[in-house]
């Protein structure tokens, strides 16, 4: 088990390194381009060369990379072109805001989708199962931006009971969090529900469930003691990987509702070619994604005695 965790950590570090190299190459191999992005299109040739020289851009590529990586490791990604402050000053508060959004979403998604998935999977083919399944297909078919528009049309335009933007200019407000969370939940819960349902339905057809029933255990005990434990191993992984998906979702939702979070920041940085901010955002996103993936793998192994005691 320990060996496994160490090995997964190794893979994670390796992945991060490869990603950072790719990212560095894509964004910084063209030195001239970097200068244009930082100093703006109207800067003179002279200005650019001066800036490049001062920042060590005429050094060999691998030296630049190592220096860049070293700085990145201690949290120094350089200055944001647009905000004119060190990247970390912009990044961390934004990340915190997105954390709140993601946490709120997960707190709704996990109980909702596990509950519905188990209910549907318990009796495969029943009316309840069919309606839960179809509902989850329908909600995953509506892209986040579409549900944002449709939900806003209802709650903001028609009913007028909720605010259409979540910029939180007057401090944190729960009310402003409702619509973004609703949109994210709507798109995400369907997938987890279907995975849970599939896992539960599969477990219900296994021979060991038959053994448990024919052992004379009460139905509730069969479900709780025998089915759930095995059926929830797969959804655990799915939920952990859902955090990765959520990082995509927040870009759309934060953009739509003008929520000051990480996703909006990344988009803004990309649209403005704010190069160092893009790098920082990308590294953070990949770190979160790879990290959750590792937790998912390790957790899966831990939950599964067949692997744990192999």
């Amino acid at each position: 088990m320990l060996v496994f965790v160490v090995r997964r950590l190794g893979t994670m570090v390796l992945t991060m390194v490869v990603v950072s190299i790719l990212l560095f190459l894509v964004l910084e191999i063209n030195v001239e381009g970097v200068a244009v992005k930082v100093l703006g299109p109207y800067s003179s040739e002279e200005q650019r060369n001066l800036w490049l020289d001062r920042n060590g851009y005429f050094d060999p590529l691998h030296e630049r990379y190592v220096r860049w990586l070293g700085n990145a490791l201690v949290g120094d990604f350089g200055d944001s072109v647009r905000f004119r402050v060190p990247v970390s000053q912009v990044l961390w508060p934004r990340l915190g805001n997105t954390g709140i959004l993601a946490l709120a979403t997960m707190m709704v998604v996990i109980p909702l989708s596990l509950g519905l998935g188990v209910l549907a999977g318990m009796r495969e083919g029943s009316k309840l199962d069919r309606s839960i399944s179809i509902t989850s297909i329908v909600t995953t078919s509506v892209p986040e931006f579409a549900s944002a528009v449709l939900i806003s049309a209802v709650f903001v335009f028609w009913l007028g009971i909720l605010p259409g933007t979540s910029s939180m200019t007057d401090g944190f407000s729960i009310v402003q969090l409702i619509l973004p969370v609703m949109v994210l939940v709507l798109y995400d819960f369907g997938y987890v529900t279907r995975m849970t349902r599939a896992s539960m339905a599969e477990v219900m057809t296994t021979h060991y469930i038959r053994t448990a029933v024919l052992k004379g255990l009460p139905y509730k005990t069969v479900i709780v003691r025998h089915a759930l434990r095995n059926a929830l191993i797969a959804p655990f992984t799915v939920i952990m990987l859902q955090i990765n998906w959520l990082l995509s979702g927040v870009i759309v939702v934060e953009f739509f509702f003008a929520y000051k979070g990480f996703g909006a920041l990344l988009l803004e940085a990309s649209l403005n070619q704010d190069i160092f901010l893009i790098e920082a955002c990308a590294m953070v996103a990949v770190f979160v994604a790879v990290g959750t993936q590792m937790l998912a793998d390790v957790g899966y192994t831990y939950l599964n005695p067949r692997i744990r005691f192999a």
């Binding site: 996103a285 990949v286 994604a289």
Partner: peptide, 19 residues
């Protein structure tokens, strides 16, 4: 494949297409 999949998809699209 794992490296590409480790990127949150939309982050990948936004960076690649904006670049």
């Amino acid at each position: 494949a794992n490296i590409i999949l480790s990127f949150p998809v939309l982050v990948l699209y936004v960076i690649v297409i904006s670049t």
